[in-house]
Amino acid sequence: MQATRRSFSFGLKFDNLVEEFLQQLTNGLAVGGIYALIALGYTMVYGVLKLINFAHGDLFTYGAYLGLTLLTSLALTDRLGFALGVLVLVLMVMGLVAVLGAILERAAYRPLRESPRLSAVVSALGASIFLQNTLMLIYGARFQVYPDGVLPTATLDLFGFYIPLMRVLIVLASVLMMIALYLFIQKTRIGAAIRAAAIDQGAARLMGIDVNRVILLVFLVGPALGGAAGLMIGLYYGQINFTMGWIYGMKAFTAAILGGIGNIPGAMVGGLLLGVIEAMGAAYLSIAWKDAIAFCVLILILMVRPTGLLGERVADKV
């Protein structure tokens, strides 16, 4: 009797541990998928221009805010039902943020393409500050809240463990987008042009590739994915703020470095990995240090293996 009771309680405890672990894992994967989507924007721009687009995180924030505005003003989910409504919403946000990305390229980066590195970095920072504060002046400095009742609160029964449906949807959506992007880059002629421009712009030009158009394209696709990620964060956490872009941007950038910057599969792997590391660290080490975990990963990876898991050299060997 005594023995069976003990084993029973042990079993319950074990179940709790597994439950906790699974919750953290799926949470990490959902956030990681979002990181990966943002990281793709960094990595694509870096691949072609060798420039860190510091304003990318703010385009992500614009995705979240545009999503909120469209969601509340158009009431898409009421009119079209949840699935179609959200799909239309995602496409609209992606389109709008892509346009913003193209404007950003035109205004902040193209005039500086021949300038020294520092100028482009400073201009990118300026653009980031400008975009953030425009948002603040329009929406105010407070947190904005996604409306209740729009999102499904259902949970999914996964072998007896209950996982929020939203989490599963986010993981699925981000993985789908990543696969679509991968196929686009690998299998289409335009994708080949992007790869060629990333390897050698001059040679690509000689082969009849319009490098300016490739760069424009990169600044359309990257921000579109970033905007979708912003919308997902809004739907997932329900709360957005005009400054959140830089912390998510930094983490996504860490993900891009972790996977190897300039490398598209690397950004996906790095994003998911970072999401899981962060979720596990917050759960099992310390929640208060959650935001520091990504920065520690960043510094460690740059010290130990600056090429990332699958990528390019970033340190001068002088």
Binding site: P111, L112, S115, S123, G126, I129, F130, Q132, N133, T134
Partner: peptide, 14 residues
């Protein structure tokens, strides 16, 4: 204030 600074940084670099 910060909006103006951001703009100034972009314009200055050009």
């Amino acid at each position: 204030r910060m909006l103006v600074f951001g703009l100034v940084m972009m314009v200055m670099m050009v």
